[in-house]
Amino acid sequence: MRNVYLAVFAALAVLTAVTVGASYMHLARPQAIAVGVCIAAVKVSLIVFFFMHMKFEGRIIRWLMVAALFFALILLFFILPDLGWSCAVCFGGEGSPMIQGFTWGIAVLLSLPALLFGAFAFFIIRSIRRKNELTRDHSTAI
């Protein structure tokens, strides 16, 4: 296990260096944000999955994808250009920075409970199922 942790540490260190390096590359804003967020997401996943003891298995990916996709679709519907970009505040009119700001901010804030709940539900239900199989006592089924 120790080697895994050290390997993850090395990966995190490298990713930190990469993300700093990328910030000096003068990318356009959307690309810069995308790169930064992606690298941060990878680092977060490494910490969650290895340090916080949750390992990848085949079905996890599928389940998480389904949950995330479902909520992403809902969010996408909400921030469709026609609906979302048209306004969250009327100061600047179409396309003003404030509108984009609110739209992205709301998207971030709404995605959090969705992802959290999906992840919790998945892991808890999986644990309950595993426990029931171990005890083989039908009266403690979920």
């Binding site: 809902i74 909400f78 609906l83 979302g84 048209s86 306004c87 505040v89 009327c90 100061f91 709404l110």
Partner: peptide, 21 residues
């Protein structure tokens, strides 16, 4: 309940399309 909050803000300057939502 997490996706209805702006019905408290219909007169805050929300544009119609978002109000519809």
């Amino acid at each position: 309940s997490f996706i209805v909050w702006a019905h408290h803000m219909f007169v805050s300057g929300l544009k119609t399309k978002l109000s519809y939502l």
